[in-house]
């Protein structure tokens, strides 16, 4: 059961943290339409995270709830990918991060729609409809900006080079994933790497971007070992609950 809870937390923490990152764009987008696009994606992601936290609360056997799970854990208890916690830089950087994640998430959720756990399955079916649309949005923007002006192209290439090191982690099985796979309750995430690479390469080619080669990959987020960025995002995310415990609207 512990492995299952950890795995579900990993699944929930990804959209929570990325949703929080995208929410930081609210009022700061390059144009109004893209400002609301990023925040609408943020809403979808936080909604998906909520479904997962609610499910975790119901199966954990602990007296907890979605708010406590989302807002009151310590940094090393968050099991999200390093990629999603990376700080926003420019719009292109945010789009690149989104695209790398969406391409992975799409494949991951397609797999989860066949999961034997009926509740996880239902959450995956519902979320996948939204994730497909996120992918369409982010992949189009990677092409538009990569194949855009000299400046937008340079920023996209820089973002790709910088974020690439966080993509290896997506396909590396954490201990809890291996355990679940052995007991027949998991999925093999490493199987998605080839298809992810093909998808990303195809979009990069259209965008005129070069895939980084031989980059050293960084790992740890799925096991609770985060980059420096994570502390800052949690400070903001948890501020109200830490300052006014049990507060409600």
């Amino acid at each position: 059961m512990e492995a299952k809870i950890k795995y579900l937390l990993h699944l929930a923490d990804n959209p929570l943290i990325l949703g929080q990152r995208l929410g930081e764009w609210c009022g700061h987008g390059p144009v109004l339409e893209q400002d609301i696009a990023l925040t609408n994606i943020s809403l979808d992601l936080i909604g998906q995270a909520r479904l997962l936290y609610q499910y975790i609360a119901s199966v954990s056997g602990q007296k907890t709830n979605e708010d406590e799970l989302a807002m009151l854990r310590y940094e090393n208890e968050y099991l999200n990918l390093l990629l999603v916690e990376q700080a926003n830089k420019n719009f292109g950087h945010t789009i690149m991060r989104q695209f790398m994640y969406d391409a992975f998430n799409l494949l991951q959720y397609e797999m989860l729609t066949h999961h034997q756990d009926t509740q996880l399955n239902a959450i995956a079916v519902k979320s996948l409809k939204e994730i497909k649309y996120h992918y369409r949005y982010s992949s189009e923007w990677v092409i538009r900006l990569g194949d855009g002006t000299e400046e937008s192209h340079a920023k996209m290439q820089e973002a790709m080079n910088e974020l690439w090191r966080y993509t290896g982690e997506m396909f590396k099985m954490a201990a809890y994933e291996t355990e679940l796979l052995k007991s027949g309750e998991g999925i093999d995430i490493s199987l998605l790497e080839t298809e992810w690479n093909q998808r990303v390469a195809a979009v990069a080619q259209q965008a005129g971007l070069k895939l980084p080669q031989g980059e050293v990959m960084l790992y740890g987020g799925k096991e609770g070992k985060h980059t420096e960025q994570m502390g800052y995002i949690l400070t903001e995310l948890q501020y109200m609950q830490r300052t006014y415990p049990q507060m409600t609207w």
């Binding site: 339409e33 609301i36 949005y137």
Partner: peptide, 13 residues
């Protein structure tokens, strides 16, 4: 189309 998203996720502009 102006944007894939509108004032809410369910709409496009």
């Amino acid at each position: 189309m102006i944007s894939r998203y509108g004032a809410t996720p369910c709409k496009a502009s």
